[in-house]
Design a protein around this nucleic acid. Structure first.
Lengths: 124, 124, 124, 124
DNA sequence: GTGGTCTAGACCACG
DNA sequence: GTGGTCTAGACCACG
């Protein structure tokens, strides 16, 4: 799991967003064990409390469960995971199309651009 | 100009972002006059100080100029505007493709999805 | 507002419960201003973060709103307040009757007991 | 014996409370044998250590006795059991009346409500 | 060891 | 001034 934070949004909110991508994308498998809070915090370079807050939010949303002593687990409800996947994909698409259209790109332009976007370009 | 703010990012940062889209997309024409701070603030529903701070940031980045006497103007340097346009488009595309790929969508899937995305879908 | 905490439940959870009673009972009027976090924390004798956490939870549940700079307010949606009032009353009644019946009291006994319970007894 | 635990209080404290209700309500008869710790733990779905801790607390309070050889027994001192029964009933009543009065219910309202509360209502 | 709570204290955005 | 975030560090329940 890779963590990249921007400075103008709360870190815990960015963690929530990233974790949703990890779960919806299957990088954290349904029913699978989530690393301990302290480990995740160290990996992400944040305070354990901050990580804890993000995970608590994900629990509230039903994406994680915690067993007080044995650790945290990804929900094993595939329908929930799939719903999140679709919802994230839709949100990303709406956002992207909205911005691109404001910038003067039409649907066909965008589709072409997307298809031809080189992996190497991903770094800027 | 439409303003939609989320609560988890500084408002001035969101204004900067929106204004860049307005300028790069031509909604604020190169060399054109920018409405007075007070008007923009009223329109966006924010404190004039907050709007002022955002405009100052845009000046620092060379997208706006201010004339002590006659107000603020969008830069008339078309190259600057175009550079911003391309940079925003690229940033949006990188972000979008990165997220979608994490969610399991391939390039072809995405291109198809983009082309067929109905305007009506934008609201859910 | 009086604050009495027991040691075997999280303080923030007890604050949430108390605040619900204050709001549902009208001690905090609908639409009314909530004292600043720091004041409430001092009054309750807890850390501001703990009070903040409780208030955030009440916001999530729609009982409070916060205006970043002007403070926090009780919801002015009377229906929400009334729903909470009824829900709390029902929960308390279910809990009470369940315990009393386990202790061997019948409905009529309980009703009599409730009606004759002296205010002075409230202190033990 | 039915066990229902909430997650925001220590389990051992909830066991102590439940056992008191069982004893005061006669579900565990005075002088009667208490099932082995392992059985109780299995029934309640908790770790034997946790159950053990709760039972030790009840011994300290004089509600249980243990015989090294023959196991644990409920106290056969009827006065002790009766005192607990009255104390629990009073505590529940004080709590209930306090909450209901905060919610705007008068004594007569409450008595009526208690008498007419249908068993079926217990589930919502 | 693991999740969870709490405090003390610093700092930020906005007005 | 007001809400909000974050860190460092301590302590607790349960296993």
């Amino acid at each position: 799991m890779r963590w990249n934070f921007v400075s103008d949004r709360p870190i815990y909110a960015q963690i929530v967003e990233s974790m949703k991508l990890f779960i919806a994308g299957g990088e954290l498998a349904p029913g699978g064990k989530v690393p301990p809070v302290r480990d995740l915090a160290a990996e992400a370079g944040v305070n354990p409390n901050t990580m804890q807050r993000a995970l608590a939010e994900l629990e509230r949303e039903g994406l994680l469960r915690s067993n007080r002593t044995s650790g945290r687990y990804v929900t094993d409800d595939a329908a929930v995971v799939e719903a999140v996947r679709l919802s994230l994909a839709k949100a990303e698409t709406v956002r992207f199309l909205g911005a691109m259209e404001k910038l003067g790109y039409g649907r066909a332009d965008i589709a072409r651009l997307v298809e031809n976007f080189k992996a190497g370009d991903d770094k800027a």
